[in-house]
Computed example of a mutant assay.
Amino acid sequence: MKCISTLAVLCALLMAGCSTTAPPQPKQSREPVAVKPTVSPAEQRARMIARLLSRAERALARDRLLMPAYDNAYDRYASVLQLDPDNEAAELGMQAIVLRYLAMARDAAQRSRYQEAHRYLDRAATVLPDNAAVSAMIDEQREQTVEPQTPVVADNAVLLNAGELQARTATVKAQLSDLALRARRDEQMVLIVTGTDAQGRWVYQTMREAVKGYLLRADIKVGSPARVEFLSPP
């Protein structure tokens, strides 16, 4: 009986051990690791060229052609051509800079600012100095941008600055007032010579306002250079 009792105790102990719950094991993370895609050198160069072209176009639209340094259209396009010597957009951009300077030179010449016009042409010549077609175009416009010789006018004539006359500046208004006072003082008739009939009428109106109450005798003629001539009284 004692042996049976001992055997029962051992069986009970073994069953108790089998029913013991094992401690939970931590779960291992199986989340995928993100891998950044590798950008090829060709793709990096393409992205850089796109950024440079975008900045160059903005600079060109704002007339930042050769200046300021390091923030102008020319430097951006030149950088693109270093990366891609045959880049068509950059080549066209360089030509656009030249054309913009030519337009600025023509505008300055039309306002009789010939020195300013030649400065623009000098800048245009530095953009594509090895392009024969561009150089020929600049030289042709340079020949046309020549300050005309001032024709001989009568000794009693006073020249008017064409640019100031076109802008109707305070300086030319003051000059016309002085001329009107002179005409009244010497009782002289004046001949007004301007580029257009409308300019001539404006000159006469300005002079007449300077001598209100006085009958300013004047004749208007379209011609060049712009001037006011004092005529001897009949």
Rank of each mutant, 00 (worst) to 15 (best):
residue 70 Y to T: 15
residue 22 A to H: 09
residue 39 V to F: 04
residue 117 A to L: 08
residue 28 Q to N: 13
residue 11 C to M: 12
residue 110 Q to L: 11
residue 127 V to S: 01
residue 145 T to D: 09
residue 163 G to V: 02
residue 32 P to C: 11
residue 218 A to H: 00
residue 116 E to V: 10
residue 193 V to K: 00
residue 178 D to R: 07
residue 53 L to I: 06
residue 90 A to T: 07
residue 139 D to R: 09
residue 187 E to R: 13
residue 185 R to V: 04
residue 1 M to H: 13
residue 95 Q to H: 14
residue 101 Y to P: 05
residue 130 D to P: 04
residue 111 R to M: 12
residue 1 M to Y: 12
residue 72 N to L: 00
residue 126 T to V: 05
residue 18 C to N: 10
residue 60 L to N: 05
residue 125 A to E: 10
residue 34 A to I: 07
residue 229 E to C: 05
residue 100 R to W: 04
residue 97 I to H: 07
residue 124 A to I: 02
residue 70 Y to E: 15
residue 7 L to N: 13
residue 49 I to G: 02
residue 186 D to N: 05
residue 210 A to D: 03
residue 138 I to G: 03
residue 195 G to K: 00
residue 95 Q to L: 08
residue 168 R to I: 09
residue 197 D to M: 11
residue 79 S to E: 14
residue 145 T to L: 10
residue 14 L to H: 08
residue 74 Y to S: 12
residue 57 E to Q: 15
residue 96 A to G: 09
residue 18 C to A: 15
residue 75 D to C: 11
residue 123 R to E: 12
residue 17 G to V: 12
residue 7 L to K: 12
residue 219 D to I: 15
residue 44 Q to G: 06
residue 148 P to G: 00
residue 226 A to R: 07
residue 166 Q to R: 04
residue 206 T to L: 04
residue 90 A to S: 06
residue 211 V to Y: 06
residue 43 E to C: 04
residue 86 D to C: 13
residue 220 I to N: 01
residue 48 M to Y: 13
residue 79 S to R: 13
residue 192 I to N: 05
residue 230 F to Y: 10
residue 4 I to N: 14
residue 198 A to T: 01
residue 106 R to H: 14
residue 82 Q to N: 09
residue 27 K to G: 12
residue 188 Q to I: 05
residue 72 N to W: 03
residue 228 V to R: 00
residue 88 E to Y: 09
residue 66 L to C: 08
residue 166 Q to L: 10
residue 106 R to C: 11
residue 17 G to D: 08
residue 205 Q to K: 14
residue 66 L to G: 10
residue 54 S to Y: 08
residue 215 L to P: 14
residue 163 G to Q: 09
residue 160 L to E: 01
residue 112 S to P: 01
residue 155 D to E: 13
residue 166 Q to G: 07
residue 124 A to W: 01
residue 198 A to R: 11
residue 220 I to E: 04
residue 160 L to G: 00
residue 70 Y to H: 08
residue 18 C to G: 11
residue 139 D to S: 13
residue 153 V to N: 02
residue 219 D to C: 09
residue 223 G to N: 09
residue 78 A to W: 09
residue 93 G to F: 04
residue 104 M to R: 05
residue 120 Y to D: 05
residue 76 R to E: 14
residue 83 L to D: 04
residue 42 A to W: 02
residue 158 V to W: 00
residue 116 E to M: 11
residue 126 T to D: 06
residue 182 R to P: 01
residue 123 R to S: 15
residue 149 Q to E: 11
residue 158 V to N: 01
residue 15 M to Q: 15
residue 88 E to A: 15
residue 155 D to F: 05
residue 21 T to N: 15
residue 56 A to E: 01
residue 109 A to N: 05
residue 193 V to M: 06
residue 28 Q to W: 11
residue 48 M to F: 15
residue 141 Q to F: 03
residue 173 K to M: 07
residue 59 A to Q: 14
residue 93 G to T: 01
residue 60 L to T: 06
residue 18 C to I: 11
residue 208 R to N: 14
residue 186 D to P: 05
residue 127 V to E: 01
residue 190 V to K: 03
residue 219 D to E: 14
residue 106 R to Y: 08
